[in-house]
């Protein structure tokens, strides 16, 4: 799992790559929580490089989204593809969150 964050156009963009499973999810959770604290307007989670996610990773995403909602700030999932997108769909997450095809289109939404 690789994690990175940047400020772009007033948004915090977190990119997560590789594999988020039960073993790596706690590190992802800690990182995302820190970035959620920093976000003043919008948090975009870019997942185009994500190969695998299990329910532990979904819980991290949901916790971050709840936190952003409490702060009345925007939360967008970007770059979902293939097998990973299918997991989000089954979990009902695609109708739960704002979703953008790419990081660029997410930035245009804000």
């Amino acid at each position: 799992m690789e994690l990175a964050a940047k400020d772009q156009g007033g948004a915090v963009v977190v990119s997560v790559k590789g594999k988020v499973d039960t073993a790596t999810a706690p590190e992802f959770g800690k990182y995302l929580s820190e970035q959620t604290d920093k976000a003043a307007k919008t948090l975009i989670v870019s997942m185009s490089g994500l190969d695998y996610i299990s329910s532990a990773g979904l819980r991290v995403i949901l916790a971050a989204a709840k936190k952003m909602k409490e702060k009345q700030l925007d939360f967008i999932l970007a770059g979902l593809e293939g097998d990973v997108k299918n997991v989000f769909r089954i979990a009902g997450f695609l109708s739960l969150f704002k979703v953008a095809d790419t990081e660029e289109s997410a930035l245009k939404q804000i």
């Binding site: 329910s55 819980r59 989204a65 709840k66 969150f97």
Partner: peptide, 19 residues
């Protein structure tokens, strides 16, 4: 699991076996 489509209300958990 709770599949409620409201972020604030949706409970965290119970998803694993469902998936």
């Amino acid at each position: 699991p709770d599949l409620t489509s409201d972020i604030s209300l949706r409970k965290i958990g119970g998803l694993g076996v469902f998936l």
